[in-house]
Structure formats: structure tokens, C-alpha cells
Amino acid sequence: MIFPGATVRVTNVDDTYYRFEGLVQRVSDGKAAVLFENGNWDKLVTFRLSELEAVK
């Protein structure tokens, strides 16, 4: 189960963010908004829950 605050990895091989890890900001309607941070940039991207896996 994916909840806000969880760290997730993108599993969709066709996505630009494949294998990126980010922090879930919100979850609704089968989608999750994931925040990616890297140095001087932040990006908030929405994914279907089926495209994400929780990082242990």
C-alpha cells in the first residue's frame, strides 16, 4: 500500500522517470503525486498507482 510520505520507485519502463525514486505527496483516484528532488530542482509528477512500487 502506498501512502503520503512513502518513498516510491517508478516501475513503468516506458516512462521518462523509470527507476527514479521520490516522495509521495498525495494519493487519490488511483493516482499518486510524487515529488522528485535533485540538487537545485524539484518536480511533482502524477503516476497511476500501478506504475509505482514502495521502496523498502
Score class of each variant (00 low, 15 high):
Ser28Val: 11
Leu44Trp: 07
Thr46Phe: 13
Lys43Leu: 14
Leu44Ile: 12
Arg19Leu: 14
Leu52Lys: 00
Arg9Pro: 01
Phe36Gln: 00
Tyr17Gln: 03
Leu49Pro: 03
Leu52Thr: 00
Pro4Gly: 04
Met1Glu: 12
Val34Asp: 00
Ile2Tyr: 04
Val8Ile: 05
Asp14Lys: 12
Gln25Tyr: 10
Ala33Gly: 05
Ala54Asn: 10
Val45Phe: 06
Leu44Tyr: 06
Glu53Cys: 08
Ser28Gln: 11
Val13Thr: 09
Leu35Met: 08
Gly22Asp: 00
Tyr18Gln: 01
Tyr18Ile: 01
Met1Ala: 12
Arg26Val: 11
Val10Glu: 00
Val34Ser: 03
Pro4Tyr: 06
Asp14Thr: 11
Phe20Asn: 06
Val13Ser: 10
Asn40Gln: 11
Leu23Gln: 09
Gln25Val: 15
Phe3Trp: 09
Thr7Ser: 07
Val45Gly: 04
Thr16Gly: 07
Ala33Cys: 13
Ile2Lys: 02
Gly22Arg: 01
Leu52Gly: 00
Leu44Gly: 03
Gln25Ile: 15
Ala6His: 06
Val10Gln: 01
Asn12Met: 05
Asp29Ser: 07
Gly5Leu: 04
Lys31Thr: 12
Asp14Pro: 03
Ser50Thr: 10
Met1His: 12
Arg48Ser: 12
Arg19Phe: 07
Arg26Cys: 14
Leu23Ser: 07
Phe47Ile: 05
Asn12Ile: 06
Thr16Tyr: 13
Leu49Gln: 04
Arg26Met: 13
Val34Met: 01
Leu23His: 07
Phe3Ala: 10
Val27Thr: 04
Asp15Asn: 15
Leu23Thr: 14
Asn40Phe: 10
Val27Ile: 11
Met1Cys: 14
Gly30Tyr: 05
Leu44His: 05
Gln25Asp: 04
Ile2Asp: 01
Arg48Lys: 13
Lys56Ile: 13
Ala54Arg: 09
Asn38Ala: 11
Ala54Pro: 12
Gly39Gln: 09
Glu51Ala: 06
Asn12His: 05
Asp29Tyr: 08
Phe20Tyr: 11
Tyr17Val: 02
Phe3Met: 10
Trp41Val: 11
Leu23Arg: 12
Asp42Lys: 15
Phe47Gln: 01
Asp29Asn: 12
Phe36Leu: 09
Glu21Ser: 08
Pro4Asn: 05
Ala54Met: 13
Ala6Gln: 12
Thr7Val: 13
Phe20Leu: 11
Lys56Ala: 13
Leu35Asn: 04
Ala33Gln: 14
Phe20Asp: 03
Ile2Met: 04
Glu37Tyr: 12
Asp14Val: 08
Gly5Lys: 03
Glu51Tyr: 06
Gly30Val: 04
Thr11Pro: 02
Arg48Pro: 12
Leu35Tyr: 11
